[in-house]
């Protein structure tokens, strides 16, 4: 299995702060990967490292088996759409496409113009007068028409209205179906990711909390509730991600490969959003525990 992105001990430091720390990942090829986490978690840093816009402070990163930004060959294999889908506002749409053709060795001009036409965008229009949704589509078109093997998208739909967001994702999924390109997409709109992603990476406070196939995540996580009990009394195969207790009841979100046999528990399936929130909450609690621990030491 070839990895679309493989990192080992990857870290990026700005001054004293680690934007990304000790990140080890192996994302298989041919997936649509959702990268989720709160603002400032390190999503943009990871994507920019993968695109070759940043160099690591620690560890290694390989994209499609090559080093990001190592040369024109590698750059041509990776399509990157930055946050807020930037475009040159004074240049027309067709000038953008011409620029793409001149700068990329595998540029597919027919594909680029076909996409713009399908989107009902006038190629003579200046990029500055496009709507947010159209500008995002232009940025996506530029990234697709260079015919990359992997597309990296940093919060491409965050600033779009629901309709433009849906249209963007429709086009993106069509491209995946047509060209079999791998995608890594960061977002905090979990409902969108639930539809399009088949692999999920949760990144919180510069650490990877979980990274796995969506089907695997949904099959192995359960919400169980029953009479109040200590979560430490669970079987060894049940890992508690989230817990809450009232004076009588205990509710847990657990990960386990095994069936849940204890008849005292009522088991409910969870959504991807439940899982994401549970891992984010777990990371926040660990961070708090770490900080209060430091406080005691002082």
């Amino acid at each position: 299995m070839t990895a679309v992105m493989e990192t080992a001990g990857l870290g990026k430091q700005y001054g004293k702060r680690w934007a990304l720390h000790d990140c080890s990942l192996a994302i298989p090829e041919g997936k649509v990967v959702g990268l989720v986490g709160p603002n400032g978690a390190g999503k943009t840093t990871l994507l920019q490292l993968a695109a070759g816009l940043l160099t690591p402070t620690a560890g290694t990163i390989e994209v499609l088996g090559g080093h990001p930004g190592s040369g024109p060959e590698q750059l041509g294999r990776v399509g990157f759409v930055a946050q807020d889908t930037p475009a040159y506002s004074r240049m027309s749409v067709s000038q953008h496409l011409r620029m793409g053709a001149l700068l990329n060795s595998h540029w597919d001009d027919e594909l680029a113009f076909r996409r713009i036409e399908a989107l009902d965008i006038d190629p003579r229009q200046r990029a500055g007068s496009l709507s947010g949704g159209q500008r995002a589509q232009l940025a996506l078109t530029l990234a697709i028409a260079k015919r990359p093997e992997v597309l990296l998208l940093d919060e491409p739909v965050a600033s779009l209205d629901p309709l433009a967001r849906r249209e963007f994702l429709q086009v993106l999924m069509e491209v995946v179906a047509e060209h079999g390109v791998s995608v890594v997409l960061s977002s905090h709109l979990v409902a969108d990711l639930e539809r399009v992603c088949d692999y999920l990476v949760v990144l919180v406070a510069s650490h990877i909390q979980v990274a796995d196939d969506v089907a695997e995540l949904l099959a192995t996580h359960h919400r169980i509730s029953g009479p109040r009990r200590d979560s430490r009394s669970l079987p060894a195969d049940q890992h508690v991600i989230e817990e809450s207790h009232t004076d009588r009841q205990t509710t847990l979100l657990i990960r386990t490969e095994q069936p849940i046999l204890d008849p005292a528990w009522t088991t409910r399936p969870v959504t991807l959003e439940d899982i994401v929130l549970a891992y984010m909450g777990q990371a926040r609690d660990q961070e708090r525990a770490r900080k209060s621990g430091l406080g005691v030491l002082r």
Binding site: L169, Q170, R195, D198
Partner: peptide, 17 residues
Amino acid sequence: PTAQQVVGKLAINPNTV
């Protein structure tokens, strides 16, 4: 419907189809 037609309408992952 082809995978492409389905994902073009529903915005879901083609692998799902």
